[in-house]
Design a protein around this nucleic acid. Structure first.
Length: 235
DNA sequence: GCGACAG
DNA sequence: ATCTTGTCGC
């Protein structure tokens, strides 16, 4: 079993978190450096208890069959507010906890959110990739930064997502008649390869099967340890 | 000052 | 993210 942990100097303030992202961005690798892929995983985080507790779920699927192979769910009190651009500081602690409970680590991780397509080029996919060494891809349902021309209507059509005169990701049509997904490299994966994996993990829905499984697990009610016995009402 | 703003 | 019923379209 893996044992990833937070760095000792984990930021607790917004300025410190932003400074760390600027520094981490210099270490992000956007050229392909992946082993042969046999397992792909999706990560998702949900909130319960009135947003006071974060629940992370990871679904590991065989590749390219996309059959569920391993899974884990972890909970942790929330310690950082939601601030656009600082998502990783809110979600990574509980994600590491869930990763540590996996029996089999995937060779690539599809994250819910941006990778390179971030104001400081360090979205949650980059951050998680740097902390774990696992190749990561950012898969977001909406845009954080950057602009693009209209995307074609056919599955697989895409347009570069640009910001400050550089390509930071892609708006990808994974299903006709729905909004495009925003794909960007996390760590150790190129944009072209990121797009290919997202398409290969997507069947008949807008979201990849990895993300759909993780979302399902994260929003699922935990099974009671002691199920309520059937009542013995006297009628 | 105003609009934008992953989950 | 989460709160929530019905509803439009293939």
């Amino acid at each position: 079993m893996p044992s990833f942990s937070l760095p000792a100097d984990w930021p607790t303030t917004i300025p410190a978190a932003q400074a760390l992202q600027t520094q981490l961005a210099t270490q992000v690798q956007t050229v392909d450096d992946l082993p042969p892929i046999h397992y792909v995983a999706g990560v998702d985080v949900g909130f319960v208890e009135g947003n006071r507790v974060a629940r992370a779920a990871i679904a590991v699927l065989s590749y390219p069959e996309l059959r569920l192979h391993d899974q884990s769910v972890a909970c942790l009190p929330v310690t950082f507010p939601y601030v656009p651009g600082l998502l990783s500081f809110r979600e990574i602690p509980v994600i590491l906890h869930a990763l540590n409970q996996l029996h089999h680590l995937p060779e690539v991780l599809l994250c819910d959110g941006q990778g390179l397509a971030h104001p400081r080029r360090c979205g949650i996919a980059c951050h998680l990739g740097l902390l774990t060494g696992i190749p990561t891809i950012g898969v977001a349902k909406s845009r954080l930064v950057g602009h693009h021309t209209p995307v074609g209507e056919t599955r697989g059509d895409w347009q570069p997502l640009r910001d400050q005169n550089e390509t930071i990701g892609a708006a990808l049509r994974t299903r006709p008649g729905t909004q495009p997904l925003y794909i960007s490299p996390g760590h150790r994966v190129s944009l072209e390869t990121s797009i290919a994996y997202v398409l290969n993990c997507t069947r008949r829905y807008r979201l990849p099967e990895t993300t759909r499984w993780a979302h399902k697990l994260a929003s699922q009610r935990p099974l009671p340890l002691f199920p309520t016995p059937p009542e013995n009402k006297v009628l």
